[in-house]
Nucleic acid binder design. Structure first.
Lengths: 206, 206, 206, 206
DNA sequence: AATGAATGAGGCTTCATTCAT
DNA sequence: CATGAATGAAGCCTCATTCAT
């Protein structure tokens, strides 16, 4: 109540979307009911319809939010000191920093939805393309990227394929904790990076 | 008529599962209705229930069939002359030889389902583990695998991550034809393989 | 509007149960469809599910309501001036005061259901036991019960057997009106009572 | 195959009806499926339709068979040495000699069905009327029937009401074994008979 | 005579969405 | 702004019945 309407509106939307990810990850987009979401958000069903035209709009908004999150991650990655640090940030955030289980399930569902829903597909394509060019750019500017005769774009594609592949496996809950799982995955991913880039060995300022 | 009952039963199941993939790929597991499937198969709804206990059983059977297909692919890959040929076979079959669109959408849905359905999760985990060890083995035995200091298992994990990552992107229908898309993806995948293995240079027949 | 939520809820439940008896009597528990009930109640099918978990719950609630009705009847019977009046009240109410046809059909169905549904069986057993002890008690306290060497409990069992036997025959719609039928049945029942109890002859205040 | 067609036909009908009582008692007329019956009879579903036009015809045939059984019981009762023996036979057979549980459940369902199905109602009415006149007759001819000022018909009505009332309670499975239950019920029924008739004390042929 | 595969109508239930309060 | 009762279409599944073999 301290904030004007528009803000309260934003808060509500956020609150609903927060509830939605949980439900979507738990049951899937179409198995999660509007009532599930409203219960998770602690509000009434009707209220959701004040902020979203329908269920599809909630899904779209979620996709949209995902896009923004990825863009923020990209921004953070750009500000890392070196390429490898950038990639590590990217990888970690990719599956969700705190709840890889939840985020991965959501993203897999998002791709599944994208295969049928053109609007969602468009959003996801956009995310992918943006990230891909971002990283391509990062690589192109990086002094480390010398080892191979691949183009920066090709490297970026390899990196993203690995990231997505790992995310997909996440939902299988192999291994014990998600912490452990992430460590395993990082080890493998770093293997790829090592093949692609030479470590910027504490530069030769000697 | 020419075939005994058991076979007729198998045929029906196959017929139904064939219809199911189409519907599942088109609309998703839970959006595809039993009526959709029966219509696609050209039979009545009730008949499906003579061959499957319920919808979930159809999904499970599909997962199971996917597992067998992957195992057959693995077998074929094993019989290829060289490691790179094996990987190429693996990659191509991974997303479906004929209809990458359909198969990829189905597999993404399968992973989405695995994140909620323990039985499906178990099946998918099994597929992954089997494939992974198969390829690990292939690499271990291969003379080409010398280039890096990665273990065969680590290489296999990289390879599968890339395959799955590509499959995931498939559903976005980026680029024009699925043929073109596959070519693009192969190009990238080959880049990785080249980093991992040295080409068994047209053996030394000199 | 004048009543709080909980009451509106009770009203709806009552409304639905009222419709349910009609349908159940007309077609039987399992032949009556949820649509039948909703139509009879003048509401939509879905609304029933806001007040009852499923059809079985409607049946159970009906059984439960029957139990309460019987208990109220018992209470009224207890307050009658003499034993014979009590029994007359009991008998009349037993098959439904207004619509013996409907109530009898419902009760026969209730017993049929009880033979398969443990929960319903438990409720019906409870009704029977409560009524039986109530009447046993009534008899034990009554000065009229002197004529035979039967125990009060044995008398109560005879009385209830006759009541239930009559109720069962009710569904055959023998004779013309239900009024006539009831008269006939009462005549027979009174015969039993006369055998068991001596009329408290206009007490000897002379 | 040793018997001519007509007989084989009768056997099949009997076999099917035997299976039907079991199913009907276990699940009720309308809850029992044709498949249940065919399985219980050890034959195929289709075969039932060779001997009965449809499910309703099976129910009617069952009702009809019940009628015949009651008539046979009546005949046996008529041949008993004394009235009380007749009543005892009648009572015992009424709920099924061997499986009171099964027969009682079936009869209650039969009455429930009678309340909606005119054809079944007619059959059941017929049974009741026949039995009732049979017993009325038995009483009228009996030297024991002297104790009260009730007419034989009124006595018969009381007797049948009690029998039916007991049968109805049978489905509640009160008490432990059905043997015990029957003993209890007989005790109560005999109480009534004692009130109505004086024991034909080893006649005074002295 | 006998089988059981096949059909499809119909029943139970869920759920996105609306609207009176 | 917020609620949640109400609607009704649609989905899953069962089952009486038919029919080719």
């Amino acid at each position: 109540m301290s904030l004007p309407q528009s803000d309260s509106g934003l808060d509500r939307r956020t609150q609903i979307l927060d509830a939605a990810v949980v439900c979507f990850a738990k049951r899937g987009f179409h198995q999660a009911s509007m009532h599930d979401i409203s219960a998770e958000a602690g509000i009434s069903v009707g209220l959701i319809y004040r902020y979203f035209q329908n269920k599809e709009a909630v899904i779209s908004a979620m996709a949209d939010r995902h896009k923004q999150e990825i863009q923020e991650i990209l921004e953070r990655a750009r500000q890392a000191p070196g390429l490898l640090e950038s990639l590590e940030i990217l990888f970690t955030a990719h599956c969700g920093e705190k709840e890889p289980q939840v985020v991965s399930a959501f993203v897999v569902d998002l791709f599944a939805e994208a295969s049928r829903n053109p609007h969602v597909a468009e959003l996801v394509r956009d995310v992918c393309e943006t990230s891909m060019s971002g990283v391509t750019d990062l690589i192109a500017r990086s002094p480390e990227a010398k080892a191979t005769n691949l183009t920066p774009r090709e490297m970026a594609e390899l990196i993203f394929a690995v990231n997505d592949g790992m995310l997909m496996r996440n939902v299988l809950k192999i291994g014990s904790t998600s912490q452990e799982r992430r460590e395993q995955q990082l080890k493998v991913a770093r293997n790829l990076w090592r093949l692609l880039f030479k470590k910027q060995t504490e530069p030769a300022y000697a």
